[in-house]
Computed example of a mutant assay.
Amino acid sequence: MTLATNTLTETPTETLATAGVSQGDVSDFFALLKPRVMFLVVFTALVGMVVVHPDVNPVVAFASLLMIAVGAGASGCLNMWWDADIDAIMTRTRGRPIPAGRIAPNEALAFGMTLSVGSVIVLGLVSNVLAASLLAFTIVFYAVIYSMWLKRSTPQNIVIGGAAGALPPIVGQAAVAGYVGWESIILFAIIFIWTPPHFWALALVKSADYARAGIPMMPNVAGPDSTRRQILAYTVVLAPLGLAPVAFGFGGLAYAIIATIGGLGMLALAFQVFRVRKGEAAMRVAQQLFAFSILYLFLLFATLLAEHGLGFFRPVFG
Rank of each mutant, 00 (worst) to 15 (best):
W182G: 15
L202I: 04
S226M: 13
I170M: 15
F250G: 02
A203S: 02
S184C: 05
P240R: 04
P224Y: 03
L167Q: 06
G262P: 00
A222W: 12
R212Q: 14
A201L: 08
V171W: 06
I170D: 09
F248D: 12
I170F: 14
A177N: 13
R229Q: 15
P197S: 13
L253W: 10
I257L: 03
A175C: 06
A175S: 05
K206R: 05
V237A: 15
E183D: 12
Y179N: 15
A213P: 02
L243E: 09
G172W: 00
A239P: 00
A259F: 03
G172M: 02
A244W: 09
A222L: 01
S184R: 04
L264G: 15
A233L: 09
L204Y: 00
R212F: 09
V171Y: 07
P169M: 14
A239Y: 00
T195R: 14
G178N: 13
G262W: 10
G181L: 10
G249S: 06
M266S: 15
R228F: 07
I257S: 05
E183T: 10
G249V: 02
P245Y: 15
A175R: 01
D225F: 03
A177F: 14
P196M: 06
V205E: 11
V237W: 10
Q230K: 07
I190R: 12
I231P: 03
R228L: 05
S207V: 10
P245E: 11
L238F: 03
T227I: 04
G242N: 11
D209K: 00
Y179K: 15
W194V: 12
I191G: 05
P245R: 15
V246H: 14
A213Q: 01
L187I: 01
I257D: 06
S207C: 02
G249N: 14
A174G: 02
F250H: 05
G263W: 08
I215Q: 08
V246T: 15
Q230H: 15
G223Q: 04
V176R: 00
G265F: 04
V237P: 05
S226V: 07
T235P: 01
L253E: 14
G265W: 01
M218N: 00
F250V: 05
V180N: 10
I215N: 08
A175L: 02
D209A: 02
A247H: 05
V236R: 13
I215C: 13
R212I: 08
W194S: 14
I191N: 03
A166S: 12
A213W: 03
L202C: 01
W194G: 07
R212A: 13
I258C: 11
G165W: 06
F188W: 10
L202T: 00
I231C: 12
W200Q: 02
P169F: 06
I190F: 07
G249P: 01
L264R: 04
I170N: 07
R229L: 03
G252E: 14
A259I: 01
T235H: 06
A259V: 02
H198A: 12
L204D: 01
T260M: 01
L202W: 06
A203I: 00
L253V: 14
I215K: 05
